[in-house]
Design a protein around this nucleic acid. Structure first.
Length: 350
DNA sequence: TAGGCCATCTGGTCCT
DNA sequence: AGGACCAGATGGCCTA
């Protein structure tokens, strides 16, 4: 875009600021309404209005083109150099037309992006219509989820539940962590020794967790549905305490530097080429060695109540979740149920 | 009231 | 030339 465009836009901004702002506000208001109603009708109307406006502008433009020819001004001295185009009405309107088209495209593009993000929200472990994850949290959770599942597939071993959860929630904000736990209808205290003792040992591994009844972990004081349901995927979202645990994890390296929200370390899935994951059983690089699973939940004496107890005993920022504030879990898609079934198979086979 | 999140507008850049 | 994409700016809404 040339500098003249910038000048034009500045002019336009000052001349039409009110109108443009009004358009923006009305559009945003309508978008809010649309969100509340859960319909796209308003958006379509918005776009139709834009198209009407564009058509009107195009009609006006044709008229202005004719006016422009008659507007030849011989009184001003001619300037040398490249002829600087006059900012005629027609040019202004053409600019406005371009801008309106570009704005409409940009709106649609962002709506498409948001739709895709909404789809992502539905397939990551925590999904609630009533309290959506923010965009950034959705992306972080999705990234952690992909990485964690990839590690499971690559290693072919059941992870320690707590470590898995910690890896999953790495870098997430505390509110998001709470929300995730809320979606699970789980209170982190469930993993305290006194509660854990009631849990059969075999239930304290991830694989057992996935095969357990959804409410097996429910603390006596916890409310019943409709606060939420728990299928296997929800187990992934328990986050008793995400940051800096003393727990030696299944996802050991995933827990490093968890205190930094901006931490964006090498937490990618092992390999993804053209959408197909390729897992190597032997770390072939220093990176893989660093990020390979270093232990299993039974090998390091981490499984069981003591592990969880030590985890929480060392926690200074305990994640106590008032269950009355927990959002309801609104259900997962068929796709996710299929995915959960596959996960169950993975955990049971390993 | 400050901060987080969001939608939108805008101009620049790259690509077809 | 026009569209896609991106990042900065802006203002509204909500919550602690």
């Amino acid at each position: 875009m040339t500098k003249s465009y910038t000048e034009e836009s500045m002019m336009l901004e000052s001349q039409n600021n009110t109108n443009w702002t009004d358009e923006c506000h009305s559009s945003q208001d309508e978008h809010d309404t649309e969100k509340k109603n859960g319909a796209h009708e308003t958006m379509h109307k918005d776009i139709e209005d834009d198209e009407d406006a564009l058509n009107r502008l195009e009609d006006d433009e044709e008229e202005e083109e004719e006016e422009e020819e008659e507007d030849g001004d011989d009184t001003k001295p001619k300037r040398r150099g490249p002829k600087k185009k006059k900012m005629t009405k027609a040019r202004l309107q053409r600019f406005k037309l371009r801008r309106m088209k570009a704005n409409a495209r940009e709106r649609n593009r962002m709506h498409g992006l948001n739709d895709a993000l909404e789809s992502l929200r539905k397939v990551v472990p925590c999904y609630s219509k009533t309290q959506k994850l923010s965009k950034i949290e959705t992306l972080r959770l999705a990234k952690n989820y992909i990485w964690a599942l990839s590690e499971i597939l690559r290693s072919g071993k059941s992870p320690d539940l707590m470590s898995f959860v910690q890896a999953l929630c790495k870098g997430l904000s505390q509110p998001t962590t709470n929300l995730v736990a809320g979606c699970l209808q789980l209170n982190p205290r469930t993993f305290l020794p006194e509660q854990s003792q009631e849990i059969p040992p075999h239930m304290q591994t991830a694989s057992a967790s996935f095969s357990a009844h959804p409410y097996s972990y429910q603390t006596p004081g916890l409310p019943s549905p409709p606060y939420g349901t728990m299928d296997s995927s929800h187990i992934f979202h328990v986050k008793p305490h995400a940051y800096g645990s003393a727990l030696e994890p299944f996802f050991e390296t995933a827990l490093t530097d968890c205190t930094s929200p901006s931490f964006d370390g090498p937490l990618s899935p092992p390999l993804s080429v053209n959408g197909n994951f390729s897992f190597k059983h032997e770390p072939s690089s220093e990176f893989e060695k660093n990020y390979a699973f270093t232990m299993h939940y039974q090998a390091a004496g981490l499984a069981g109540p003591q592990t969880h107890a030590s985890l929480y005993a060392s926690s200074t920022q305990r994640c106590d979740i008032p269950m009355e504030n927990i959002m309801s879990y609104d259900g997962h898609s068929h796709h996710e149920r299929v995915m959960n079934a596959q996960l169950n198979a993975i955990f049971h086979d390993s």
